[in-house]
């Protein structure tokens, strides 16, 4: 059962599961491992190993994601790292914000978002590219900025 990473460190079981929709038993050991002050930072490939949902490598930093009501009501069915994303996404939140608050690389956030979206737990709202070159939209930005004291 024991698996180890390249440095010989043991990997807790939740790192080895791939399927976002498959709940893991609540594992106090895993939680303690993550909570421990001396716990090493998880490397991206450990957190996301063996996954299958297609990742959008171009998902914008400012794209908004929002969790589905049902999963908000029952987040414990999720793997730890997916649960963390859902907990931050009760209201729409940007991909960049998720990365900052969870201390995760942008690319890892994209992977987690893809997992959750594929399982129907998260909705992804891609920004409309045309907005940035729409004169009416730019005028709206100018009005908003001008109001800053």
């Amino acid at each position: 059962m024991t698996e180890a990473d390249g440095a010989g460190r043991r990997l807790p079981p939740y790192m080895r599961h791939a399927d976002a929709s498959r709940p893991l038993p609540d594992d106090p050991g895993a939680q303690a491992y993550l909570d421990a002050d001396d716990a090493p930072r998880l490397r991206p490939y450990q957190m996301t190993g063996g996954r299958t949902a297609p990742v959008d490598p171009t998902l914008a930093l400012e794209a908004q994601v929002v969790a589905d009501g049902a999963v908000i009501a029952a987040p414990h069915a999720l793997r730890f790292e997916h649960r963390e994303v859902v907990n931050l996404a009760h209201d729409p939140v940007s991909v960049a914000e998720l990365g900052a608050l969870l201390h995760l690389h942008l690319q890892v956030v994209r992977v987690l978002v893809a997992d959750l979206a594929a399982a129907g737990h998260l909705r992804v709202l891609r920004p409309q590219r045309a907005a940035a070159t729409d004169p009416a939209m730019i005028e709206r930005v100018i009005r908003g900025l001008s109001a800053i004291a």
Binding site: Y45, A100, V108
Partner: peptide, 22 residues
């Protein structure tokens, strides 16, 4: 202000290959 991190290399390309260490 917050800080988010991006890697220079495409981490997602690595994670699809199980066991491949960046």
């Amino acid at each position: 202000p917050l800080t988010t991190e991006a890697a220079m290399t495409d981490v997602a390309a690595h994670v699809d290959r199980t066991g491949d260490v960046p």
